[in-house]
Design a protein around this nucleic acid. Structure first.
Length: 425
RNA sequence: GUGAGCGUAGCUCAGUAGGUGGCAGCACCGGGUUGUGGCCUCGGAGGUCGUGGGUUCAAGUCCCAUCGCUCACCCCA
C-alpha cells in the first residue's frame, strides 16, 4: 500500500511552482507599490482568537477548524485574525498610525475538497489598519484589481455594504420578520438560516429563495447616515480610479467581523468556486480583540484559484527552467575533472549541470537539451588529454575548441565570461 | 455532514458476450550515427488491473464489501 498525501492536501509539483512563484512575485511587487510590508505569523494560534474574531456561530468556526483536541490550539483557517493579533500584541500602531501589511501562506479548513477548494490552501492577504476614509477602501480594492489585471485575469467586481452595529441589527430584525412570513416558500436550509444567519438567505442560490429575496428589504436603503455616506464615497472613489464594479445587495460574508464595505472578485471559470478574492472592512474587530479602537479593511485571494484561473484563462508563458551550461564528461577518466569544473563554474555564478554516468555523448546532449542548457561543454578524453574541450552552442549548433589551462577557478571564470558574451545576440 | 461519478504502466487512456494484460500515445533507456540533442526509425524496460472476499473450469471484465480520488451540495479565498 503506497503512502499518499492526505485528502485535501496537495503537492505543488515543480512544473506548477513556476506559476505560483510568478503570482507571488507580481503580488509582492504590486503590494510594495502601495506601501505594504510583509508580515509572517505562526500557523498555529489559540483557538480563542478565531472564535472571537470570525464568530462562534460561523461555519468556519463551528465545523471547519483543525483544532488540537487537548491544547486549545487551532491551525489558522484565515489570515486576518492572526494579523490583528500580531498587530495588537506588538503595538504596531504606536510607531506608525496607519499600517499596511500583507502576508502569504497556507490556511486550513476541514471542508470536503473539490475544484478550487482544498483543506490546506494558500492565500495572499492584504490589510490596511488605522484608516477609516472611504478612499482607503477604494485604494485597496484598486490594488486587488491591479494584481488581477497584471496576471492577465478577467474577473468581475461586486460591491456591497453590510452597515454597522447601528444600522444592521434593526435591518436584521426586519429581515427575519419578512422571511418568517414567507416561511413556506423557502428551502429547508433557508428556514434554518432565518434564525441562525438570516443575511445568508439573501445569498441562497435556489430559484425559489431568490424569488422571495427579490422582494426583501434592502440594507442599502436603510443604512445609517454615516454608513450611507461612506458607501457613496467608496463608489465615487472607485469610479475616479476607473475601477468597474457592480452593486450586489445580496452579497454576504461568512465571517462575522465584517462591517460596511464588502467586495468580491468573481469568475465563472472555476466551477462552483466563484470567488477568486474577497474582502471588506472590519471596523470593530481590533477593539473586540482587546486592541486599540482602530478601523481596518483587507482582502484575501486564493492562490490555488489564481493559479487555476491563469491556467484556464490565459496561457501566459512562465519563464521555463534553463541552465547556462551542461558539462558532458565522456568516459570515466574525465568525470573527476568535469565535476571540479562544474563546481568552479557554479562558484562563478553559472547555472551548471553535469552527468557523472560517463554515458554516451548522444545521451548527454539529450539531457542537456532537456534541462534547456544554453551551452554544452564536451569534455572528450582525447581533447582533455591535450588540455582542451569543445564548447557547443545548443542554439546555433556551432562548436569551438576551448583551452583548459591554469587553475580551475581561472578556467571557470574565462569559460563563464565566454558563454556570457557568446549568448548575447 | 449529503449526493453522484471514477480507480488498468510515471502521465493520458484502450480493453470488445467473462478465455494468455496493450506493436496504444507521452515520458524513460538503448541502437541506427565506432564521440554530437530536438525530427525520424528500430528495439527495450516498466503492471500485486486500488484492496479484500464471492460466483465460475476461467474475473481487468459479473456480485459484495472496503479504501482512495474527482465533481457537486453545504460553506468559502
Amino acid at each position: 500500500m503506497k503512502i499518499q498525501a492526505i485528502n485535501g492536501f496537495k503537492d505543488i509539483l515543480p512544473e506548477a511552482v513556476g506559476r505560483w512563484q510568478y503570482i507571488e512575485r507580481q503580488a509582492r511587487d504590486i503590494f510594495a507599490r502601495f506601501g505594504f510590508q510583509e508580515i509572517r505569523m505562526p500557523i498555529l494560534e489559540k483557538t480563542e482568537l478565531f472564535v472571537r474574531s470570525i464568530g462562534e456561530a460561523t461555519d468556519v468556526v463551528e465545523k471547519e477548524m483543525y483544532t488540537f483536541a487537548d491544547k486549545g490550539i487551532t491551525m489558522r483557517p484565515e489570515a486576518t485574525a492572526s494579523v490583528m493579533r500580531a498587530f495588537i500584541e506588538h503595538g504596531l500602531h504606536v510607531q506608525q498610525p496607519v499600517q499596511r501589511l500583507y502576508t502569504i501562506g497556507p490556511m486550513f479548513r476541514h471542508e470536503r475538497p473539490q475544484k478550487g477548494r482544498l483543506r490546506q490552501f494558500h492565500q495572499l492577504d492584504a490589510e490596511i489598519i488605522g484608516a477609516a476614509e472611504p478612499r482607503v477602501d477604494a485604494e485597496l480594492i484598486a490594488m486587488g484589481q491591479m494584481l488581477l489585471d497584471e496576471l492577465g485575469l478577467t474577473v468581475s467586481l461586486e460591491l456591497n455594504s453590510l452597515g454597522c452595529p447601528i444600522c444592521r441589527p434593526p435591518f436584521k430584525e426586519r429581515l427575519v420578520l419578512f422571511l418568517a412570513e414567507r416561511h413556506q416558500a423557502l428551502c429547508d436550509d433557508c428556514r434554518r438560516r432565518t434564525h441562525t444567519n438570516p443575511l445568508r438567505v439573501l445569498d441562497c442560490k435556489k430559484e425559489s429563495c431568490r424569488a422571495v429575496v427579490q422582494e426583501a428589504p434592502s440594507l442599502l436603503e436603510v443604512l445609517c447616515p454615516d454608513c450611507d455616506r461612506h458607501f457613496t464615497e467608496v463608489r465615487s472613489a472607485l469610479e475616479e480610479l476607473g475601477i468597474v464594479f457592480s452593486i450586489n445587495r445580496f452579497m454576504v460574508r461568512g465571517l462575522d467581523y465584517y462591517t460596511r464595505t464588502t467586495f468580491e472578485f468573481l469568475t465563472a471559470d472555476l466551477g462552483a468556486q466563484a470567488a477568486v478574492g474577497a474582502g471588506g472592512r472590519y471596523d470593530g474587530l481590533i477593539e473586540q480583540l482587546g486592541g486599540p479602537s482602530l478601523s481596518g479593511i483587507g482582502f484575501a485571494m486564493g492562490l490555488e484559484r489564481l493559479a487555476l484561473l491563469m491556467e484556464q484563462q490565459q496561457n501566459r508563458l512562465i519563464p521555463a527552467k534553463s541552465m547556462d551550461i551542461f558539462v558532458a564528461a565522456l568516459g570515466m577518466t574525465t568525470v573527476a575533472f568535469s565535476g571540479q569544473l562544474t563546481h568552479a563554474l557554479r562558484q562563478q555564478g553559472a547555472k551548471a549541470a553535469i552527468d557523472y554516468s560517463g554515458r554516451s555523448l548522444k545521451a548527454q546532449l539529450k539531457q542537456a537539451g532537456r534541462v534547456n542548457a544554453r551551452f554544452t561543454l564536451i569534455v572528450g578524453e582525447d581533447e582533455w588529454a591535450r588540455g582542451e574541450a569543445i564548447l557547443r552552442d545548443m542554439q546555433t549548433q556551432k562548436q569551438q575548441p576551448v583551452l583548459l589551462s591554469g587553475p580551475i577557478e581561472e578556467q571557470a571564470r574565462s569559460l563563464f565570461a565566454m558563454i556570457q558574451t557568446a549568448a548575447r545576440p
